[in-house]
């Protein structure tokens, strides 16, 4: 077990090293931040001075080693634009994005697993056909459209839910989150639904397909021959076997939701990382962009590790070595 975790952490470090190189090179070939920080008619000496103070006059590999050395100490540089440590800017926003992603996942799981299982157990019923049609629509609708539609219906027409921003946060078990207040949920439900819509649709299809496959297995017939009623067969015998691929996808999607929440956060003015990265890209604020990408890479790596460990819990057949 420990050896397995150690091996996975080692693999993760290699991935992060590669990511750091790619990020560094990509950010450096993409535009000149000095030009966006100074007015177009700035004096040549002012340009030179800023270049030196940002360390941009040194060769690229020197810049990279400085970057890695500082990064290992948690110093990703100062935001060119806000003049505060870049990593802090990202980490300040991180919990808000994670909160949004978790709410999105929670909503998708609550909807998709029962819906997918139902559609697998009763594939011919009209309700199943409705579920499958809905999931097709969910996969096809782009985020910006579904978000705006939700605002139009629930905020503009009925005025039930606020259209933007984050609600009151409360402290619970040492964590401060808006998920612990009613106002927080009122604010988060629409952005979370928008962000999770694709995932609901995809999970429904995944659960349905997986469950239909499981229901054909001999052990399901055997459970029927044992006289087990439907609820035990579907929930205890079939669903647990269906969950293995589903967990992988949920895990990978959690990373995706955290990493690609920009559109949703922009539509709902959600003060998370996604909005920060969009603004920073516009301003060519390199330290913030790099901090963001590295934070997201770390999150992805960590989630993958967690998923692998969860397999072990759900599938006793998996050997850890």
């Amino acid at each position: 077990m420990l050896e397995y975790i150690g091996k996975r952490i080692w693999q993760t470090l290699i991935v992060l090293f590669l990511v750091s190189i790619i990020v560094f090179v990509m950010v450096n070939v993409n535009g000149d931040p000095v030009q966006s920080l100074l007015p177009p008619d700035a004096e040549p000496w002012a340009v030179e001075e800023l270049r030196t103070s940002l360390g941009l006059d040194k060769p690229l590999y020197v810049q990279y080693f400085m970057f890695v050395k500082n990064a290992l100490q948690g110093d990703m540089g100062i935001s060119y634009y806000q003049q505060t440590p870049a990593l802090n800017l990202v980490l300040d926003r991180l919990p808000k994005t994670v909160e949004l992603a978790l709410a999105a996942i929670l909503i998708s799981i609550i909807i998709a697993i029962p819906a997918g299982a139902y559609a697998a157990v009763k594939p011919e019923s009209p309700f199943s056909k409705f579920i499958m049609f809905g999931s097709l629509a969910g996969i096809s609708l782009p985020t910006f459209l579904s978000g705006i539609l939700l605002i139009l219906i629930f905020a503009v027409t009925f005025s039930w839910l606020p259209s933007s921003g984050r609600g009151d946060a409360a402290q619970f078990l040492g964590m401060k989150s808006s998920l612990f207040t009613l106002d927080g949920w009122k604010h988060i439900i629409m952005p979370a639904a928008t962000l999770g819509l694709y995932m609901v649709a995809m999970l429904i299809r995944l659960v349905r397909a997986g469950m239909m496959e499981v229901l054909k297995q001999d052990y399901i017939s055997f459970a029927k021959a044992k006289g087990m009623p439907g609820r035990i067969i579907y929930i205890r015998h079939a669903l647990k076997n269906t969950m293995i691929p589903v967990i992988t996808v949920i895990g990978l999607q959690l990373g995706r939701l955290i990493g690609f929440s920009m559109i949703t956060e922009t539509i709902f003015a959600w003060p998370g990382m996604g909005k920060l990265i969009l603004d920073s890209i516009n301003r060519l604020d390199r330290p913030v962009i790099m901090s963001y990408i590295l934070v997201v890479a770390v999150i992805f790596a960590f989630i993958n590790l967690t998923v692998d460990l969860l397999y072990y819990f759900f599938d006793p057949r998996i050997e850890l070595n």
Binding site: Q217, D218, Y219, S221, A223, A225, H237, N241, D315, P316
Partner: peptide, 11 residues
């Protein structure tokens, strides 16, 4: 059932 390898639930 015929095949004991598949008639027990693996999980």
């Amino acid at each position: 059932f015929q095949d004991p390898m598949t008639s027990l639930n693996p999980v």
